[in-house]
Design a protein around this nucleic acid. Structure first.
Length: 836
DNA sequence: ATCATCTGTTTTTTT
DNA sequence: AACAGATGAT
């Protein structure tokens, strides 16, 4: 190990260790005083393997950070001797801040606290030559990766439509997540792609990466693993260095990460004795939500075997949420079979706390509006900060509706993990320029910008350049430099290319001398890239220029262009201004680890949540992962959780009727309030979701069978039969009309009839008075659907809230085919139509 | 070489 | 519906 660390130089004055030691009290240090016994055990059991099973909100991060502070304070290790791995950059950042708070001041000197990937790069930079890379290798992002794969597929003379690069990229990712090299992948997998050329493509891809002096995300783990395996001396150095290893979110580690960790943690025997492995993994099997990305919950279950004699500590005392929220979450997650089984509890149950709310909406727009109103309400009436509220969605496309709504309302919001700064077109272009300057072998970057802005260097020229480069075996930039001295190109492109090459050479020379921010600016100016956007009259051009400025600004904090590029590749996410008061909108996945006073959970509908794809691809375990996601969502809330579902959602551009998520049925009545505006509410089991969407049951036998054994479901069934012919749900034609008018009346947004606030009494819960026809505002809600006697017949003119006017073309029970004047022919439910 | 139009695909989650 | 990529016209 060449870098200097504190084990050699001693604690620096003002360094973290020094401060930690100063903070240590004579007896029990005060940093443990606020801990409960389990937490304290997790902090103080520093020696040997420890597995902490930490339920949501049980102070997991606190334990981790305090443990580190404890190790430092007791002088067991220097900061540089602690390896602390987190799953996300956000988590790493937070840990740094919190350790800093414990120890006082900023954290410096924890060089090995970071994500698997950032630590991986750090190691790889040091030993790059061992895997055939140079220390300044580039990290490819998904976009580069796909472009490269596409080239390879074409080079193999495969049809790139039949064998999409994206698919292969996903396969690659899967293999690397499992720690598989080309020779190790399953035969079947290898044959499954590109006419059986999967393995060859993988190998070709790796070879190409090497010649580009690049690696992808997976390699940041794969390469270190290979190095550890083939160079025991290097591994031994790391063994010696890392006295303590801490791993956050252990349930989310994949096989590659597991192998990497195990190599670092398992020490060879010495004098017949296993050396102490001071590894502490913290996780929660109930929050394992990255199975689709190769995470193996199994890792957490196997901990004992990997590290014999492990101490297992359970944290079940929840400090975050109310009893109702915990009750709802626990009951829901109880439906999972594959779990270690923890039960969260709180010391402060309070029956006055608000129950978990379930709300119904007509469509996604109404949902957004209702959520917006609820937010304003909390703001106004309860004086809540927007910062204390979050909307957690299953899929990012859901965010847009909320954004649209909040913009018109003038409500501050902040999208977390949305379209990423560094993924924007202009940013990627600019970065490509910088990459070319820093890494002359970066062909992908060069290709990206040779003709951006348009210079007249089209396909033909690039192809020639490519061939030339391949023939000479040099990178594209080098080839370009040579080719302009030959007669290969026509004069016009040749001169243009010569200018481009000259530019890059000039910039490269400035790299060492000019300040990097100035150089960056200069590159964007001289290349004509800034000008390109200045001349662009499109609406987004000014924003793009602004982003470019922001890019330069954010470079200030880094010392050089290369180090900035590294940051970008790893983080991909720019800091957001956390200053202003704003509602957060994010996916459930990115919400993990966070908490909010109030949490909104929209989109609880079958197909969206649980997501259809999880169901299709993951079967039961897929469903269980979705349920864990729901659990994560609910447990983000400290005081209020408000769930929404709607009956219409636009998917792939067309409106679809949706039915409520099965997860709603899995919530315990005792902790849940079904928000209903109207008259009689007969309990949500009885009145409720079961009845909703009765029309969907027509062919949905599967829906009735199998998984549905919950009390709520049975009640729903009972109610359904109870209602007998004619009272099932809201399929009655008049229902729509009533709700429609209700919506208009209080909706406050005329002209958009389909928008309608929840108070209008959708009949979604069918406001069950058990056993009888239901009434809403004095009107009979349900009509017979049993005999399917449609009020419509072929040729009738009808109106649909989404599709507008049309003519009935076919009647099939309560499903009608309608030729809409504008929207074309659609198959719709009778209940969505009104006679005109 | 570049632009316009047409096609097909897409939308789960992320380091 | 929105977008990317491909194709054909200028």
């Amino acid at each position: 190990m060449t870098d200097r660390d504190e084990s050699k130089t001693g604690p620096r004055a003002g360094g973290i260790a020094a401060r930690a030691m100063a903070a240590r009290g004579a007896s029990a240090p005060d940093y443990v005083s606020g801990l409960n016994p389990e937490q304290r055990a997790a902090v103080e059991t520093t020696e040997g393997p420890v597995l902490v099973l930490a339920g949501a909100g049980t102070g997991k991060t606190r334990v981790l950070t305090t443990r580190i502070a404890h190790i430092l304070a007791t002088g067991k290790a220097w900061p540089s001797q602690i390896l602390a791995v987190t799953f996300t950059n956000k988590a790493a950042r937070e840990m740094k801040v919190r350790i800093g708070m414990l120890v006082g001041g900023q954290v410096e000197g924890m060089p090995w606290l970071g994500t698997f990937h950032s630590i991986g790069v750090k190691m790889l930079r040091k030993h790059a030559e061992l895997v055939g890379l140079k220390s300044n290798f580039t990290i490819l992002d998904t976009d580069d990766q796909i472009r490269l794969i596409k080239q390879l597929i074409q080079a193999e003379n495969l049809d790139d439509k039949r064998w999409p690069a994206r698919t292969f990229a996903n396969m690659l990712d899967g293999w690397k997540n499992k720690g598989l090299e080309p020779r190790n992948i399953a035969e079947g997998d290898a044959r499954a792609f590109g006419n059986g050329k999967g393995r060859e493509l993988y190998q070709a891809y790796q070879d190409r990466l090497k010649s580009l002096n690049a690696c992808d995300f997976g390699d940041l783990l794969m390469h270190p693993i290979a190095i550890f395996r083939h160079h025991p001396d290097i591994l031994a150095e790391y063994h010696q260095r890392f006295r303590y290893i801490l791993v956050d979110e252990y349930q989310d580690t994949n096989v590659a990460q597991y192998l990497w960790l195990r190599l670092l943690a398992q020490r060879p025997e010495r004098d017949g004795e296993r050396q102490a492995v001071n590894i502490c993994c913290v996780g929660d099997d109930d929050q394992s939500i990255y199975g689709w990305r190769g995470a193996e919950v199994d890792n957490i279950l196997r901990f004992d075997k990997d590290f014999p004699g492990a101490t297992v500590i359970r944290l079940e005392r929840n400090y975050r949420s109310t009893g109702h929220i915990l009750g709802a979450a626990s009951h829901l997650i109880g439906h999972n079979e594959d779990r270690l089984g923890k039960t969260l509890f709180t010391d402060h149950p309070n029956p006055d706390d608000p129950k978990v709310e379930v709300n119904a909406g007509w469509d996604s727009e109404e949902e957004a509006r209702a959520v917006g109103e609820a937010i304003e309400d909390l703001q106004r009436r309860e004086n809540h900060n927007l910062n204390d509220m979050a909307i957690l969605v299953r899929a990012s496309f859901q965010m847009r509706t909320f954004e649209d709504r909040f913009v018109t309302m003038g409500l501050n919001y902040r999208v977390i993990g949305g379209p990423r700064f560094y993924e924007r077109l202009e940013i990627r272009d600019a970065l490509a320029y910088f990459r070319c300057v820093c890494q002359p072998a970066d062909d992908l970057a060069f290709e990206r910008i040779v003709n951006t802005p348009k210079r007249g260097l089209g396909d033909a020229t690039i192809r020639l350049l490519h061939d030339y480069a391949r023939a000479k075996g040099v990178p594209l930039i080098a080839a370009a430099r040579q080719i302009v001295e030959t007669e290969e190109l026509k004069p016009k492109p040749r001169n243009t290319l010569r200018r481009v090459v000259a530019d890059f050479m000039r910039w490269s020379e400035l790299l060492g001398t000019t300040k990097h921010t100035e150089l960056a600016e200069q590159i964007l100016e001289e290349s004509g890239y800034s000008e390109m956007w200045q001349n662009d009259r499109s609406a987004e051009a000014p924003g793009r220029l602004e982003n470019l400025k922001e890019l330069i600004r954010s470079m200030e904090e880094y010392e050089s262009l290369p180090s900035f590029l590294e940051h970008v590749a790893l983080v991909m996410d720019a800091e957001q201004n956390a200053e202003m008061d704003a509602v957060s909108i994010m996916t459930l996945h990115s919400a993990k680890g966070l908490e909010f006073e109030t949490v909104f959970l929209p989109g609880w509908e079958e197909g969206l949540f649980p997501h259809q794809r999880s169901l299709d691809e993951g079967g039961r375990s897929g469903l269980e992962e979705e349920r864990r996601l729901a659990y994560v969502g609910i447990t983000r809330g400290k005081r209020r959780v408000k769930i929404w579902f709607v009956s219409n959602r636009r998917i792939h551009g067309l409106w679809q009727t949706t039915i409520p998520s099965r997860f709603l049925d899995e919530l315990p009545e005792a902790h849940v309030d079904v928000m209903e505006a109207n008259t009689s509410y007969g309990g949500y089991g009885a009145g409720g979701f079961g009845n909703y969407g009765a029309s969907r049951w027509d062919g949905a036998a599967a829906f009735n069978e199998g998984a549905y054994r919950t009390p709520g479901w049975r009640r729903a069934q009972a109610a359904k039969e109870d209602g007998g012919n004619g009272t099932a749900g809201w399929t009655g034609g008049r229902t729509r009309e009533i709700t429609y008018e209700g919506g208009e009346a209080s909706g406050g947004r005329a002209g958009r009839g389909h928008n309608q606030p929840p108070r209008a009494g959708l009949g979604l819960y069918s406001s069950a008075k058990r056993g009888g026809p239901r009434e809403i505002e004095g009107e009979l809600v349900a009509k017979s659907v049993a005999d399917h006697e449609s009020p419509f017949s072929v040729g009738d003119r009808v109106f649909h809230l989404k599709f507008g006017n049309g003519t009935v073309a076919l009647v099939d029970g309560n499903k009608l085919t309608v030729d809409f004047d504008k929207a074309g022919q659609k198959r719709v439910l009778e209940s969505f139509l009104q006679a005109v």
